[in-house]
Nucleic acid binder design. Structure first.
Lengths: 146, 146
DNA sequence: GTTTGTGCAAATATTTTGCACTTGA
DNA sequence: TCAAGTGCAAAATATTTGCACAAAC
């Protein structure tokens, strides 16, 4: 199973080049712009496959849209995303796991699973003051300037 | 503004009685079952209002559905939810904020915002061994017994 | 050649919105 | 009174699925 098709290749390729999280819709547009016609349904199916294989991370945006991103390591980990420039840092497991486990323990919970995403401004973007004002009224949007 | 209507009262009442997270759809059904006819759109609008006022918590389920739950405190906080019985513990802010801030700092990020949800088995459910087997083959699924 | 993958369009599902009508203060 | 709130149905979004066809192995 798992044949290598032109479409699958294109999706992987685009994912490899984009470091930020993209929604299936964005990915589909990106492909179209590159002249590679891939059906939207295929994009969804491919992303599901990749996600199941642990090759991409899935995260739910605040508005319920699913966002995908290629994964450097296949270990379980989380992200710290700059909401201005999209830079993403992978938070190394141990810290998070330990913390989550601790909180769970202190309440008598076992088999803890977690959903954790951190958003902020990276060092570079923090220094650019122009943003300060802009961030005031539209903070959570990870809009697509790409 | 903010008039007290029959519908709004009904929604608040149901939310007050249900300790777990419910989706707008479930809430709508529940209302119908009680003989109180409230339009689905109204349920959504009411929940949005309540959420904006900080009177209910919103959390995104793994499938993108939004779930609401009345909030004990109006402070910012997170949840530790038992995936077997639905018991919910509110994790007190300081711990989480401090941890999130720390992680952010160590990567030079500022203005950290976060999305954190923990799921596990509470003390009571952990002891019921029947679950152990069931959990074994479907671990990552936050499946919908609802 | 057979089985897996694809494209399209239609189906689902969830949430939002336009608009005329109600109703609470 | 009269603006805020509601109901309904239609719209907008996001994602899934059925099915005939194409392509990979």
């Amino acid at each position: 199973m798992q044949r290598m098709t032109r479409q699958r290749l294109a999706v992987s390729e685009v994912l490899a080049e984009i470091p930020e999280f993209v929604s299936a819709q964005q990915l589909h547009e990106e492909l179209a712009e590159r002249g590679v016609a891939v059906g939207l349904a295929t994009v969804y199916r491919t992303l599901q496959t990749l996600a199941a294989a642990g090759e991409v991370d899935v995260l739910r945006l605040a508005d319920g849209e699913a966002a995908y991103r290629r994964c450097a390591t296949r270990d379980h980990h989380h992200h710290l995303v700059c909401r201005a420039c999209g830079t993403t840092v992978e938070i190394d497991g141990p810290t998070v796991e330990a913390w989550a486990g601790l909180v769970g323990d202190s309440h008598g919970f076992t088999r803890i699973e977690h959903t954790i995403e951190l958003f902020g401004l990276c060092a570079e973007c923090s220094s650019e003051d122009a943003l300060d004002a802009a961030v005031e009224d539209g903070p959570a949007r990870s809009d697509g300037d790409r």
